[in-house]
Amino acid sequence: MSILLLFSAGFIVEKIILISVLFAITLGVAAYSTYGERKFAAFFQDRLGPDRAGPWGILQPLADGVKMFTKEDFRPNEAERWLYILAPGAFMFVACMTSAVIPWGTQLTVFGTPVDLQVADLNIGILYILGLSSLGVYGIMIGGWSSNNKFSLYGAIRASSQMISYELAMGLSVIAVVMMTGTLSLKEMAAQQAGFNWNVWYQPLGFLIFFICSLAECNRAPFDMAECETELIGGYHTEYSSMKLGFFLFAEYINMFISSAVTATVFFGGYNFPGLDPNWLGGFMGPIVLFAKVFFFIFVFMWIRWTIPRFRYDQLMHLGWKSLIPLAIFNMLLTGAGVLYFGK
């Protein structure tokens, strides 16, 4: 009851503007991630990548978008009609919702009024992100199932079991950080890591586990079992075409952006960098630093994709259940002992 009473007109307008800007930035970053992916992939393979649309090919995402929109929208005859249409939308929707709790900076001064650079300061921010990342799999599952194609179904089933397995290790690695910082709110977590006091120095193992799991949660290579071009012809989106396919691919890039942002916020100090006060430039320094970190992590995601070959399915399950989860539990115990001993 009390949370609803806090809403005032100015508050709502401020949040709507913030959400719109964030939404636009998210889509823009995702669009240019596709360009970046193709360009980086080319560079890693001694090629040049797309360079025809505009200088250095920077208009390539627009061309891709036009292509996606104008292609024939094909629907299999035996597909579950509504679910088939719903799935890409659900995937995209969940992907876009996650950015709400990430603190993009401290405060921005616009027209003399301070604006918090966070859409919602939930006191359970990190749990919100874990929850939504576990919901992301529904889009894949519904899409794969409703296509009425065995390869799609395989992709969907692989995606779901992979998500469930890696969520556990991810949650356990986050719990260690939560034990250390004593808060579930991402805003407080970022604020505690001022300067160079980043969580990754205290939780290197936790970071490693979290990062591997976020690769798996984003369905990125080497964990792209859900797509698996070579075995499953594209997995859950085999039967999708046109912008429905575009939504699936786009949402994956949004997921990558968000998980990079979460990694940067939880482990790498968020908007903090030694020597750079996040309040500089009227508060714009924070977002600049955070976005630099996010782009670095997106680069690492792509770097890994174009270096490491895909796991076999049983190797994936072994890694998840027999290595990462015990390691995460060990890390949790270690952190608990550390917190008890040092009284952090």
């Binding site: 980086f40 080319a42 560079f43 890693f44 393979q45 001694d46 090629r47 040049l48 360079d51 770097w303 890994i304 174009w306 270096t307 490491i308």
Partner: peptide, 21 residues
């Protein structure tokens, strides 16, 4: 492995690529 691919990346990014346009 990542160091190997990074060397290729940097070579194309800052040096010459073998591509003929």
């Amino acid at each position: 492995g990542m160091w190997t691919t990074l060397k290729h990346f940097l070579r194309v990014m800052f040096g010459k690529s073998h591509t003929v346009r």
